[in-house]
């Protein structure tokens, strides 16, 4: 992956303060991207983010890529009859004039094959691919394993 060295440098030199970065592409706003620290690199990491579609055309998140993991996928946690499972989500709808959250207990990015353990305070880039808007990269803040969401000034908790 061509951005690997740059990304590895970013991970190693990441500041402790949260970036709380907001990026836009077309009518989409992507913000509050966060992840949880992992114990070692053997366990999968997780990716959460909030996407707002201010436009009048439905879009969909169809994939994610990151130098931090060899096999990132979109998942949806489903609790049916009290049993939790995590099926693969082919795409996550981002309807016109709506706000969609990848958040604990719902849609999430599953980061399998981590290249390194995710350390609290670090950050790493994730590139989101949308069906219509195309690709956009956001920096993801790694919070503690206990975290329930980012502590950005404008974050929806």
């Amino acid at each position: 992956m061509k951005h690997f060295l740059l990304a590895a440098a970013l991970i190693l030199s990441a500041p402790a303060v949260m970036a709380c970065e907001t990026v836009t592409i077309g009518d989409l706003t992507i913000e509050h991207a966060w992840s949880k620290a992992t114990i070692g690199a053997g366990r999968p990491g997780v990716f959460y983010v909030e996407i707002t579609n201010a436009g009048s055309v439905d879009d969909a998140l169809i994939g994610i890529a990151t130098p931090a993991a060899g096999m990132p996928m979109l998942h949806e946690t489903v609790v049916k009859d009290g049993i939790a499972s995590m099926p693969h989500a082919m795409s996550i709808p981002v309807p016109a004039d709506q706000n969609v959250q990848l958040s604990p207990g719902g849609y999430h990015g599953m980061l399998m094959g981590l290249t390194t353990a995710l350390k609290e305070g670090a950050s790493f880039p994730v590139t989101l691919s949308f069906e219509k808007a195309g690709e956009v990269t956001v920096n993801v803040d790694v919070l503690s394993l206990r975290a329930e969401g980012p502590d950005c000034a404008d974050a929806v908790q």
């Binding site: 707002t52 946690t77 489903v78 609790v79 049916k80 009859d81 009290g82 996550i92 709808p93 309807p95 004039d97 709506q98 706000n99 969609v100 959250q101 990848l102 958040s103 207990g105 719902g106 849609y107 929806v156």
Partner: peptide, 15 residues
């Protein structure tokens, strides 16, 4: 705007 996917709704009590 409508929030989608934030929290899953609760299921019925266990039988």
């Amino acid at each position: 705007m409508l929030g989608v996917g934030a929290y899953r709704t609760r299921k019925q009590p266990t039988r």
